[in-house]
Design a protein around this nucleic acid. Sequence first.
DNA 1: CTGATACTTCACCATGTAGCGAAGTATTGT
DNA 2: ACAATACTTCGCTACATGGTGAAGTATCAG
Lengths: 111, 111
Amino acid sequence: MVKYQSSAIDRTFSALADPTRRHILLRLKDAPGLSVSELARPLSLKLPGMMKHLDVLSDAGLITRAKTGRTVSVNLSVGPMQEAMAWLQRYERLWTVSLDRLVAFVEKDGE
Amino acid sequence: MVKYQSSAIDRTFSALADPTRRHILLRLKDAPGLSVSELARPLSLKLPGMMKHLDVLSDAGLITRAKTGRTVSVNLSVGPMQEAMAWLQRYERLWTVSLDRLVAFVEKDGE
DNA sequence: CTGATACTTCACCATGTAGCGAAGTATTGT
DNA sequence: ACAATACTTCGCTACATGGTGAAGTATCAG
C-alpha cells in the first residue's frame, strides 16, 4: 500500500476529521488497551471497517497496536495531536474567547 | 449534490487536512483581505481550484468572503479553529512535552 | 458600446475513502 | 484433530476530493 507523501500533519488532521475516529480516540483515552472487536462492537461497525479506521489512525501515528496471541490491544499515542495543537496555537493571538468555555461546547462530541 | 450532514468540527478538521488550505489560512493571517486571484497566483493554482478550496474553508466557517465590485476579499474567521483546539485540548493531561517547543517544530509548514 | 478583468459555474477526469461480504490466517479451547 | 475466535486481507460498490479547461456573469476602463 503505497502511501502518497502527505505530511504528518496532513494525516493527523485528516484522521481527526472523521467522527468515528474521534470517538475511538476518546474511548481509548478512558479505556486504554481495548481490542479491535471491543472498539467495533458499540459502533455497529464490522471488523473490516474498523480495520480501515485503525489503519488511518496508525498511519497518522495517533495509536499503537500490540498483538498478544490473537487479540490486538490498541493504545493512544498523542504526539501528532500535540503537533496539530501547535499548528492551531499559531492563531492564538487572533482569539478572544476563553478556551475553557469552548471545551464545554464541544463536549457533546464525545458521545 | 447531496451534502452529508457532517458536523462543524468534521468540516473544520477536514479543511485543515490539506496543506494548500493551511497555507491559505496562514497567508490570510499575515495579509487579511487578499483577493481570490492574489491567493491563487503564488500557488500555481487556477481560479476554479482556488474556488473549491475557498468553498471548503467557507463551509467550515474558517473564512468569510466579501465582494466589492468584481473583486472578493477573503478574511479569517477563527471561531471553528477554537473548537478544533478545544477538542484537542481534551488530551492535555496525556501530554508531557511543552507546546512552545512544538510550535517551533511545525513552523516550517508555513512556507 | 466594446473589451478586459475577476470571479463563478459546469463538465469532466483521476484518485482516495468508507463501507460491506467473503475468504484467509493465526491462536485458543475441547 | 477440530472448531471457534480474532483479526486480516481481498474484491467490490458508492461517493467525495482536487484538479483541469471552457463557458458564463458581472463590473470597470476607454
